[in-house]
Amino acid sequence: MEINVITSDATYSHIALVGKLDIAGVGQIENKFLGYTAAGKKNSIVDLSGVTFLGSMGLRILLSAAKSLKQEKKKLILLNPQPLVNEVLEASGIGDVVAIEHDTASAVAQAQA
């Protein structure tokens, strides 16, 4: 599991996750992930195109980050999930708290708004 930082400026952060978000994967990136999203207190884009699996512990950190940001009136935007991951996101009902975007430009526009 890897985290790549694409943008991290005053207005928003944009990171990409790569690998399997299962229990082991989450363990490797949890602190760093929450550092770039929840702790940053700014709109955050998380590119999921490199995530091949999203398990319940993976959903948990996405939800934790989304809820922390929501308290700060900031957004978590999930970008380009693969079809299988998208299915898990849809079934989880997490769509109530996060935006799921399939277009980078519009995700960035939302994050900068």
Binding site: L63, K67, E90, A91, S92, G93, I94, V97
Partner: peptide, 14 residues
């Protein structure tokens, strides 16, 4: 048989 709904405990008032 799929119904939409947030994970239990995920978000108050879901």
């Amino acid at each position: 048989l799929l119904a939409r709904g947030m994970m239990i405990g995920g978000m108050p008032g879901s």
